[in-house]
Structure formats: C-alpha cells, structure tokens
C-alpha cells in the first residue's frame, strides 16, 4: 500500500472546504484555476478515495456527486482518540511524550517536575 498520494490529500482538503456535494466536473474546474489537470485523473482519484472510505457518493443523473464521510474535526477527534488509546486494545504502535493522567496525578507530577526543574538549573 503506497502512502497517501498528494492529489488525494488535496482533493479531500478541497471537499472539506466546500459546502455540500461536489461533482468531479466542479472540482476539476476549481483545481484548474491553479494547475493543469486531467478530468480522468481527478475522477479516478475520487473513485479511489471512495473505495478507501474517505468520500461518500451518490449518482445524480450520469455523474456521481461526492462528499467527505467525516468532517475534518471528526477525523481529528477520531485520530486523537485512537492515539490516546494506543497500546491498550489496538495494534497501533506509537510513542507518547507523556501519558494521559488524571487531574490529581497531573498536579502531583507538576509539583515534582517544578522542583526538579529548579534543581537542574
């Protein structure tokens, strides 16, 4: 599986910035204001994004209209949830700078750290 192609990221980003549903034609027109791009390239990329679950679509007449399955904020929240939960029940491997703590633990830790930070100076 290759990394997320640049164009895929651009397209998802554009759709997040637009309201409602978008056809391939509308997006191509928008993109062409900034660069030369083939209709079929955009079409196949959006098809890929639909397969990967980033975009939902429905047929309107001859063409599909697309929209993001989740908002950017929802995706952020989901990623954050996944990251904070990593290692407990999931196969996600990441290294946290700090673990999540309760208010009390955090306060105790902060006091100890402040003492140590003073000593280190």
């Amino acid at each position: 599986m290759r990394g997320f192609g640049d164009l895929e990221a651009v397209i998802v980003d554009r759709l997040w910035n637009r309201e409602g549903k978008t056809t391939v034609r509308e997006l191509v027109d928008e993109l062409r204001r900034e660069r030369e791009i083939a209709y079929t390239t955009v079409m196949s990329t959006m098809d890929n994004l639909h397969t990967k679950g980033w975009l939902a679509r429905e047929r309107e007449g001859k063409a599909y209209t697309y929209w993001p399955t989740l908002t950017r904020e929802q995706y952020s929240a989901r990623l954050m949830h996944e990251a904070l939960d990593a290692g407990r029940n999931s196969s996600l491997v990441l290294t946290h700078l700090l673990e999540q703590m309760t208010e009390e633990e955090s306060a105790n830790l902060r006091k100890a750290l402040a003492r140590l930070a003073k000593k280190a100076r």
Partner: peptide, 24 residues
C-alpha cells in the same frame, strides 16, 4: 517542556493506565 505539557489536560477519554510515575 515536560512541565509545560503536563499541565491541566481535559478529562482524558478512554481508560486510564499510567500513573505518571514513568514521567517522574
């Protein structure tokens, strides 16, 4: 940096595991 980041965090979602001992 550790000190600045260990500041008040919003109530964490999901289960709590660590006690902060490791950071200390």
């Amino acid at each position: 940096a550790l000190l600045a980041l260990s500041g008040r965090m919003p109530a964490p979602r999901g289960a709590l595991g660590s006690t902060g001992v490791d950071v200390l």
